[in-house]
Amino acid sequence: MGRGRLSSFDTMPTEAEGIIAWASQELSDRERTQTDIYAEFVEKCEALMKEHRGELEFRIPSFSSFNRYSIRMAKLTRRLDETRAVVAALSERFDPKDADDLTVMTVETIKSMVLHMLADHDDKLLPKDVMQLASAIRQAQQAQSASTYRRAKTMEFLEEAVETVAKMKGMTAETSEAIKRQILGVVN
């Protein structure tokens, strides 16, 4: 089974990838109208062809193609934003350990979503689309690393606090270790 007809964005030369990435960023910023962005997109494409003095000719996507591209990018951005919002809302409702578990689960979900999107759209994704998906994975992994680091620092702080209180109250080392095991699940 074939991949179907290529979109006008798929047929643009690699030299235009920077212009496509710029348009994608402008669309996701939501500060300008699509019509204004498209007009500048056309200008940039024409300038690129002029710069190459006839050695680079390509068909500039029509406004309707630009609109379809915009909708596709908006769906992708919205899906990633919704995932981030759900994670943020859920993490506020859980204690640190539950939030860490949720972070791990979310990172795995994001990775899975990206892999599914790559599998479903590998023939339609532009290099900048892949770059955005890679960025989503990197940000998710950074969140997971930060969560793990925060948990480790919290554990260190709580262990030190238990030891300090134990010394102040004259408790034995065995009692201090028992408290840590009960409260923190730490076994030294």
Rank of each mutant, 00 (worst) to 15 (best):
R5C: 03
L6M: 10
S7G: 08
F9G: 07
D10Y: 00
M12E: 03
M12V: 00
M12A: 01
P13S: 03
E17R: 03
I20G: 03
S24L: 02
S24R: 08
Q25K: 08
Q25E: 14
Q25T: 13
E26F: 03
E26Q: 13
L27F: 05
S28Q: 14
R30P: 04
R30G: 13
E31K: 15
T35P: 00
I37R: 02
Y38A: 02
Y38E: 03
A39D: 12
A39C: 09
K44L: 06
C45W: 01
E46R: 06
H52I: 01
F58D: 02
R59W: 02
R59V: 02
I60T: 05
P61D: 01
P61E: 01
F63R: 15
S64V: 00
S65Q: 07
S65T: 04
F66R: 05
R68Q: 07
Y69I: 00
A74P: 01
T77Y: 14
R78G: 11
L80A: 14
L80Y: 13
E82F: 12
R84W: 07
V87C: 03
A88T: 14
A88K: 12
A88N: 08
L90F: 04
F94D: 04
D95Y: 09
K97Q: 15
D98T: 12
A99N: 06
D100M: 13
D101A: 08
D101G: 15
V104Q: 09
M105L: 14
T106N: 06
V107N: 01
E108D: 12
I110K: 10
K111E: 14
L115C: 11
H116P: 00
M117E: 14
M117N: 08
H121R: 12
H121G: 08
D122V: 07
K124H: 07
L125W: 02
L126T: 05
P127W: 03
K128S: 15
V130F: 10
M131D: 15
L133K: 13
A134K: 14
A136N: 11
R138G: 08
R138C: 04
R138L: 11
A140V: 07
S145P: 01
A146V: 08
A146F: 09
T148E: 10
R151D: 10
A152Y: 06
K153Y: 03
K153W: 01
E159H: 12
E160F: 02
A161L: 13
T164R: 12
V165R: 09
V165H: 07
A166H: 03
K167F: 10
K167L: 13
M171A: 03
M171P: 01
E174R: 11
E174Q: 14
I179N: 07
R181H: 13
R181Q: 15
Q182P: 04
Q182T: 15
I183M: 15
V186Q: 13
N188Q: 12
